[in-house]
């Protein structure tokens, strides 16, 4: 199925020429040149199949496919930014280790906090991936029963997988922060911690700095869920991550805020 290292589709000469032209163009543009974004976007889009291909290698290891593709794409963006056309290497050859590096880092950062049996880790990955698929098909989050029927397991198995999912290590805070710096925010700065949102909250002078100190993505998730009445699924879609990841980030952030408020 693969024609070369990490390449899933056989490119025609035209695509190869286009890739080369874009890379050359990119090498001539300054870092802050506004034309850079369009060139970069096209290169990233061209190579997304490579990210999908590499992410598939890790599909049974406890993470949803969507999340793996997302971190892989961060690797791809890094590769586009760092690629030096004068060195004469193939871009896909250069990008592959960078993409794999991001995916591996994702696993390292999210090491299981408890000893979770291999079978349950695999089921957790299947639940995460199938949940994303069913959400797309049904246009809403699936129920536990629907997941169980779809995967041919019991509802208790699904509940075990959900619990296991929350048993992930919380050591990934810093890693998430790094990712946030590189990931363009689809919502932008529209979600500041404004007075209107916090109007009903006494002690807002206490909670505001805590919210402002949160990493960008966690703050967005908290503001959207609790002050802008979005569902976890809507937030997942807006931020391009899985709903299960939104759940984990929400649970962790609320726990932290509760602790900080108790201490203050």
């Amino acid at each position: 199925m693969t024609a070369g290292p990490g390449r899933t589709t056989r490119w025609g000469d035209e695509q190869r020429r286009r890739e080369h032209a874009l890379l050359e163009q990119l090498s001539t543009l300054d870092r802050d040149d506004p034309r850079r974004a369009a060139v970069r976007d096209e290169l990233v889009t061209m190579h997304l199949p490579l990210v999908h291909h590499l992410a598939r290698r890790y599909r049974d290891r406890g993470e949803s496919s969507d999340d793996l593709v997302q971190v892989g794409t961060i690797g791809l963006i890094k590769a586009v930014d760092r690629f030096d056309i004068d060195r004469g290497a193939e871009f896909s050859t250069y990008a592959t280790p960078t993409i794999l590096g991001e995916i591996k880092r994702h696993f390292r950062d999210r090491a299981w906090a408890m000893k979770v049996p291999r079978r349950l880790q695999e089921l957790t990955a299947q639940v995460a991936t199938r949940s994303d698929e069913l959400t797309r098909d049904l246009q809403r989050s699936p129920t536990v029963r629907e997941l169980a029927e779809s995967l041919g397991v019991t509802t208790d198995d699904i509940l075990d997988a959900i619990e296991a999912r929350h048993a992930y290590s919380t050591a990934s805070l810093d890693a998430d922060r790094d990712d946030d710096a590189e990931r363009p925010s689809p919502i932008g700065d529209a979600l500041g911690v404004d007075d209107a949102a916090l109007e009903a909250v006494e002690y807002r002078e206490t909670i505001r700095p805590l919210l402002e100190a949160l990493p960008e993505r966690e703050r967005q998730i908290v503001m959207l869920r609790f002050f802008h009445e979005r569902s976890q699924s809507q937030i997942a879609e807006e931020l391009g991550i899985s709903q299960m990841h939104v759940s984990r980030l929400l649970a962790r952030t609320l726990g932290q805020l509760r602790q900080q408020l108790a201490d203050s």
Binding site: S131, R140, S141, P142, T143, V144, R145, L147, T155, I158, L159, I162, S231, Q232, S233, A236, Q243, M244, S247, L250, A251
Partner: peptide
């Protein structure tokens, strides 16, 4: 929440 057949996002809530 699973017995009430709630969707996953509501279950997590």
């Amino acid at each position: 929440a699973a017995r009430a057949d709630l969707p996953l996002d509501q279950l997590e809530d």
